[in-house]
Design a protein around this nucleic acid. Structure first.
Length: 427
RNA sequence: GGAGAGAUGGCAGAGUGGUCGAAUGCGGCAGACUCGAAAUCUGUUGUACGGUUCUCCGUACCGGGGGUUCGAAUCCCUCUCUCUCCGCCA
């Protein structure tokens, strides 16, 4: 949620900054709504004050044993009038809330201009793609060749965009997640969280998935209520601080959480149809930080570095991209994507997205801390994949493949595989 | 799934129609006493929105929503959640 004070103070300036990310702010609608709100709110509150004063007078007169029928007659009708005004005010406020809810976050000043992914800026590259002395296979051929990846079973059981793994590959998948949790939890100081996979609409609103992006989610109805399968652990974990007023000394909060993630992938029908790059269900280890505003951009650098550590330890080549304004998500003020090298695609592919949401989510969630003046102020929230487990597995398969179709286990993961060094057919 | 009891400020806990944003205690903050601390005493201490603008003022909020009333923390309806007992279950 954008700060309404900013719109009041500098409407045109804000509209201009939002235009950069392809959002056209209806300034006239805002001004009209604001004027109406101001008038109705002033009138409502004034009448409420008069009604309260009158009711108080009646009470006091009654206490003295006086006749109050005259006072009561004066007051009759005031209640209905107040009610009507309140209803009107609520409607205006709801409209204003809806208006604000649909506005994306303001990009940070360090974010480059641009409208598409082509204009993202490469920040750094780590590692060099390996030279294979043989024709490389993609992860589907490798996994199926090992007899450990079965898309036809997954399709039979659920449908397209689902994965079924068996044996050593399933174990390696688990090892990857365990490894990430251990590095972030034990070395980077994140507190491990286990959280609900189904959340209510309010939580989805808090992190910005609702109301605009309901079509991207799996919704689970229960009576009149709706639950949603989480598209990322960001949702339950960030909402841990919803409605809270945190003590300054308790910040920063750092959480790591491994969950499955569920995405409808509506509107991406033709993309990445082969393999496990784009699935309805995938595992991810998510990093979340809740910090003081002044420190949030330093925290984004730190968090991104924590995600990169995983790729370094796994010795997978990657690059870090700073997203341009047009390619950023709705709630983000600044985003780095980490892209891992996939030999079969001869390309870098996204494996992590690290964002600073500044106060955008905090305002929606009412997540605050007590600042130096002792006043409640919205915190800043950040998150990043640390990393997407399925895509990490894809990267391992493709980068660690051998000429005979077997796959070496990265050294860092061997302790999680009972020392096993290789995935081979029948394993 | 069945039966019962609850939900009040950071916490505990009063308050069954009017001067209640809410007693009291604890905690927090400030001050007094003290060389300092403890104890004691005094004062103070919620959030949101709006107006004004760094000073105050107004409105709302006693689990959520709705109703009765001139007036609701208090009465009525409803939902959610918590606790106890029984059943079931991983």
């Amino acid at each position: 949620m954008i700060d309404i004070q900013l719109l009041r103070a500098d409407l045109n300036g804000i509209a201009e900054r939002l235009a950069g990310r392809g959002f056209s702010l209806d300034a006239q609608a805002f001004l009209a709504l604001e004027a109406k709100r101001k008038a109705v709110q002033a009138e409502t509150e004034e009448l409420q004050a008069r009604r309260n004063a009158q009711a108080k007078k009646i009470g006091q007169a009654k206490g003295r044993g006086e006749d109050v029928s005259g006072l009561m007659a004066e007051a009759s009708g005031m209640g209905d009038h107040v009610g009507a005004l309140q209803a009107q005010l609520e409607e205006i406020q709801r409209a204003q809330h809806d208006f604000l809810s649909a506005i994306p976050n303001l990009p940070h000043e360090s974010v480059p201009r641009g409208t598409t992914a082509e204009e993202n800026v490469q920040v750094r590259v780590w590692g060099a793609p390996r030279e294979f002395g043989f024709p490389v296979k993609d992860h589907v051929d490798l996994g199926e060749g090992l007899g450990q990846l079965d898309f036809s079973a997954a399709t039979r059981i659920a449908g397209s965009r689902f994965t079924l793994m068996k044996g050593d590959l399933a174990r390696l998948h688990r090892a990857v997640a365990q490894f990430m949790l251990d590095v972030h939890g034990r070395e980077h100081g994140y507190t491990e969280i286990y959280a609900p996979y189904l959340v209510n609409a309010q939580s989805m609103f808090g992190t910005g998935q609702l109301p605009k992006f309901e079509q991207d989610l799996f919704m689970v109805p229960r009576g009149d209520e709706k639950w949603y399968l989480i598209p990322t652990a960001e949702v339950p974990v960030t909402n841990m601080v919803a409605g809270e007023i945190l003590q300054q000394g308790s910040l920063p909060l750092r959480f790591v959480c491994h969950t499955p993630c569920f995405r409808s992938e509506a509107g991406s029908y033709g993309r990445d149809t082969r393999g496990m790059i784009r699935q309805h269900q995938f595992d991810k280890v998510e990093l979340v930080q809740v910090v003081e505003p002044a420190l949030s951009h330093a925290a984004l650098e730190e968090l991104t570095g924590h995600a990169e550590t995983i790729l370094k330890r796994l010795e997978l080549p990657y690059r870090v991209m700073l997203l341009c304004v047009g390619d950023m998500g709705f709630a983000s003020a600044k985003t780095y994507d980490i892209e891992v090298w996939l030999p079969a695609q001869n390309a870098y592919r996204e494996i992590s997205s690290c964002s600073n949401f500044e106060a955008f989510q905090a305002r929606r969630m009412q997540a605050r801390f007590r600042n130096d003046k002792g006043r409640p102020e919205p915190v800043h929230t950040l998150n990043g994949s640390g990393l997407a487990v399925g895509r990490t597995l894809v990267a391992i398969l493709e980068n660690y493949q051998n000429a005979d179709g077997s796959v070496s286990v990265p050294v860092a993961l061997r302790p999680y595989m009972g020392g096993q060094e290789r995935l081979t057919r029948g394993g």
